[in-house]
Amino acid sequence: MKFKAAVIALFLGLLIWLGLNGSLGREVLITGIIVTVITSFFYIGSGVFRDVHLTPRALIALIAWIIVFLIELVKSNIDVMSRVVTPKVRINPAIVQVKTKLRSRLGRLALANSITLTPGTLTADIVDDTLFIHWIDASTVDIDEATRKIVEKFEKHLEVLFG
């Protein structure tokens, strides 16, 4: 278990190196393997990827999360664009508070990033399990209802992926 982060870092680094070079030549491959093996030594014993689950169920959750995320991205972009082009800017902003069930730091990071990337909602701060969200069209300021509207669609997939 101690080497999990190192192995993941090794594969990610090698993938990025090969993508940047765009070739599978012998010199490129040897240089890349040497450099990524040396850098992955620094990850031994670190807990960066500790919470990532590497099971088939997590893979399905990852794909479901990406699909949900892309649909939300397009939908909310159309919504915000329509607000920009109308002659009178019609917005109803507020900073609301929501709760998350996710325990791991990586999971909370992914949740905050997916909330931020869908326009209309913007994570302004995280304190433990409370997220403060600036919402361009706040229909409610109640904690439970805002949680249901903003967080749940991403949370149920991230929960499987990161726990």
Partner: peptide, 28 residues
């Protein structure tokens, strides 16, 4: 991209940047 917009938003709130008068509620 989300990281930079999150950092800017937090810095803005920390500096008490004026919010638009339409803002209904500020839980933070």
């Amino acid at each position: 991209n989300p990281v930079s917009s999150h950092v800017v938003a937090r810095a803005a709130h920390f500096n008490k940047e004026p919010m638009s008068p339409l803002t209904t509620c500020d839980k933070m």
